[in-house]
């Protein structure tokens, strides 16, 4: 079904970037825990939040207050824009580069002339992207684990929820990777695919922000993938992970299925 030769080659090409992402995400989790455990920030943040306009308080207030607990800090580490952005870069670049980018560069032509079915290449790419994103998220788990070991005060954090919140982040970025693959499968240029996927992701992000800020448009939240990554709720023990995983997982599967079909059927221009 898959091609280990292809998978090995992809991992080999990106191993340094993957290692960097693993360390970056891991260190970030340690840093977040250090920040929360090492300082009494509650009063300061409360004062600060009171200065903000009411809409901004809605956007940041609850999250910030929750994050000042250990559980909140752990959740925040898996929802921080830097971490999410880093993983989104990996999620978008891999399929955009290895489908549309390789069509543009001409190397996919050589690969498709080999005695291997195209769907095996596409399926392998989807799986290796998922695997690499999981490794990056595992960097977060490793960082959280190290933080919990370093700070005895933090040891109360429930491990299963930490794993759950990481899985939630993984599903979010894997979904992004899947729709990027669908976009790339219809394109002949890596740069354009990257921009389109990044643009769509930004639209989803702003839809989510709009839905939080303005109750009138909160129905939008159901149509944005970011709504289905709720690390705070997962860390607080709310049973949202199953539903969110079902939505994101289904979306990822549909996008990947359509992308694999398109890769198998499309013309490869010279």
């Amino acid at each position: 079904m898959i091609s280990w030769n292809y998978i090995t080659n992809i991992v080999r090409q990106h191993r340094l970037f993957l290692l960097f992402t693993f360390i970056f995400v891991g260190l970030f989790q340690v840093l977040i825990l250090t920040f929360v455990v090492g300082a009494d920030l509650l009063g300061f943040v409360e004062q600060f939040l009171r200065q903000l306009p009411s809409r901004m308080q809605v956007l940041f207030g609850e999250q910030f207050m929750a994050q000042l607990s250990i559980n909140g800090a752990v959740a925040f580490g898996y929802n921080h824009p830097l971490v999410v952005a880093m993983l989104i870069i990996v999620a978008i670049l891999l399929p955009a580069r290895h489908i549309a980018g390789e069509i543009e560069a001409g190397s996919l032509e050589l690969l498709f002339a080999m005695p291997i079915k195209r769907y095996r290449i596409a399926l392998s790419l989807w799986l290796v992207a998922g695997g690499m994103l999981l490794v990056a998220v595992a960097g977060g788990w490793t960082g959280t684990g190290c933080g919990l070991l370093l700070f005895p005060e933090a040891r109360g954090a429930p491990i299963l929820r930490v794993i759950g919140v990481g899985l939630s982040l993984w599903l979010l970025v894997f979904t992004i990777s899947s729709y990027t693959m669908l976009i790339a499968s219809h394109s002949n240029e890596g740069g354009k695919s990257t921009l389109r996927a990044a643009g769509l992701t930004l639209v989803f992000y702003f839809m989510n922000v709009a839905a939080i800020l303005w109750p009138r448009v909160d129905f939008l939240s159901h149509f944005t993938i970011f709504h289905y990554h709720q690390p705070q709720q997962v860390m607080m023990g709310e049973p949202v992970l199953g539903k969110n995983a079902a939505v994101l997982g289904a979306l990822a599967l549909v996008c990947a299925g359509l992308a694999i079909r398109q890769v198998s059927r499309r013309d490869v221009p010279g």
Partner: peptide
Amino acid sequence: ASVRQRIGYLPGEFRP
């Protein structure tokens, strides 16, 4: 794909 096992291909613009 199985037929391509017996074929060797060099494109006009070889871009490895």
